[in-house]
Design a binder for these strands. Structure first.
Lengths: 341, 341
DNA sequence: TTGTAAGCGTTATCAT
DNA sequence: ATGATAACGCTTACAA
């Protein structure tokens, strides 16, 4: 498969040694102009391409970065969040000639198996980790093995670099919007509370209520897992509690909730106002259109890859502080919150 | 980065030779039970993992398959089609312990550059090609280099294996549904006509009309490129032609068309009926809910990966026929076609 | 059953 | 500026 051209062959054709060809191909300075051109010519004419494995065996670099997602396939691809994230990552990688390996870490039977096969085998120069729980064993492993990595979403460990949005502030903004519209009995469907984003958005919810001297009623806080089904389930639980508004920690759960509310004969926003988080394309198409917090997801992806490639190409000193980048989310007011229309 | 354990080290610790360790790790039969266990113990305790590059330098296999998409990032990730496709491919790859490299081939400046870097460098054991034009130079290149590959969507060359749906039949089904509802003046917004899916769906449209003795009016056929913008543009062109129904070759374009129709004061389905293709999640959430042809996209992804891994692991004889798999699409009737409600 | 040794195609060190 | 030559870590005949 493919032309089995080797350095050796090119060297022979160009009448030079392997080393010279290697130097030319790698743009090393110490090659005479004449030889350089002669070699390039042969390379072009033959379509020679260095063998990646041979190369990385000696350089210890692969020019591949991994995108690792510790989730099941289904949840992953259902949520456009990941598409946008991937899009951003891909753009950076393409621009800097890195390849991208997509890995779902989900080994129920032999935990750590994927890690060994994908990371420890030397396949990757670094890793972007998305959507990990704070206690995911992946993080300490990467740290221990000194693998360059960047998380999408914050992590408490001082040593990890990440890109995140101000989830606390964003959630607070969403809930305060509801409060300003006159709501007092506001429920929330949270994300998984062992994920930083889940925790932070709940914190923002609490802060908003407290800032407005509204007592926090724990029965109005229902944990979801970012899936539509969990949003529906949570909404069903909230049905009897006469909340006048619901803040869902992502749009997908808001969709689940919306269906349940509608089926229960409640009108949104007249009977119950609803606010989501993410601003996926579906949000705008929904009836009623979903008010939500827009995250710059694609930018987060691109930026995390930027940080990663930087980490890879200029390894920081041991004590150097990790990078923490916080981007902003914005409130997109549509009809589901009841402020317009 | 990572533990720099080598075969050598393990051999030393286990008191055997490198070859023996290699045999154990690769499950070769000719190893005594005692030695096998002793070696495995050391491997487990040390967390040894063979170096991928070293391994594939000699085996000429990487256990990585590429997903190649000759499109720009934006169009790619906007359309959930690719998410589902990726999902299917990922499932198969995960199950068979293959890794997945995601590559967008989009080199406006130096065509063929990505191909050389990604494919010719020996990075991949095989490739799934999605969303390629029939005349994409990628295909002959893969053929010439004897790279195992499977396309998602048919290709005229006898030698290429593919997974596709019966686009002609599906489009015909969609249009006949409109005809049965009494429509005679039916327009279509096609996909790119240099893609098999675009061509085939147009063919199905024509067949449906002809089967019902409705003359084909070429002014009612507008080419799009599967993007929302192109759908909108096409709809705008159709506005003055008094079509009573539009068949869009994918849902995204249908969404674009819907917005234009609505802005023009036309009601869907009362004034213009609309049918899409794909059944992306948005289709059901739309107002009115979009009637559409549902493709088993995830299954297509899984199946194309299945075929590919098969091709890789048991290379067919030279004259052996390529695999052609055709799956079925189904009509999902919602409100936009005007049959219900 | 186990070990020895020859590569796989590069890069990198050291001479020249 | 160029060329030998020794790794890099593994698999795989071939020997024992």
């Amino acid at each position: 498969m493919g032309a089995s051209l080797t350095l050796e062959k090119i060297a022979e054709l160009a009448g030079v040694s392997r080393s010279t060809v290697s130097r030319v191909v790698n743009d090393h300075p110490n090659v005479s102009e004449a030889v350089r051109e002669r070699v390039w010519k042969v390379v072009r004419e033959t379509g020679y391409q260095p063998h990646a494995a041979a190369r990385s065996l000696v350089t210890r670099r692969t020019n591949i970065v991994g995108v690792i997602i510790p989730e099941t396939v289904t949840t992953l691809f259902t949520d456009p969040f990941f598409s946008y994230l991937l899009s951003g990552i891909t753009q950076t990688c393409n621009a800097q000639r890195y390849h991208l390996m997509l890995s779902l870490f989900n080994d129920p039977v032999a935990p750590g198996d994927s890690y060994r096969r994908v990371v420890r085998s030397g396949h990757l120069d670094g890793v972007v980790v998305a959507s990990a729980r704070v206690d995911d064993p992946l993080i300490p492993r990467l740290l221990k093995d000194h693998v360059p990595f960047v998380m999408v979403g914050r992590h408490p460990d001082k040593r990890v670099s990440y890109v995140d949005i101000d989830n606390v502030g964003a959630a607070r903004m969403a809930v305060e919007h509801l409060i300003r519209s006159g709501h007092r009995r506001i429920a929330t469907i949270t994300g998984p509370l062992n994920m930083a984003s889940g925790e932070d958005r709940l914190k923002g919810y609490r802060q908003a209520l407290e800032a407005h001297h509204i007592p926090v009623d724990d029965s109005l806080i229902v944990e979801g897992d970012f899936s539509e089904a969990s949003g529906a389930l949570a909404a069903r639980r909230l049905l009897s509690l006469s909340a006048t508004a619901i803040f869902a920690a992502n749009d997908i759960m808001a969709v689940g909730a919306l269906k349940v509310l509608r089926d229960a004969g409640l009108r949104v926003p007249q009977d119950v106002a609803l606010v989501g988080f993410d601003d996926i394309p579906l949000a705008a198409a929904l009836q009623p259109a979903l008010t939500t917090m827009r995250q710059p997801i694609e930018q987060m992806g691109a930026m995390s890859a930027d940080l990663l490639l930087d980490l890879i190409e200029t390894p920081p000193d041991d004590g150097a502080p990790a990078h923490k980048v916080i981007l902003l989310a914005e409130l997109v007011v549509r009809t589901s919150c009841g402020v317009l229309g």
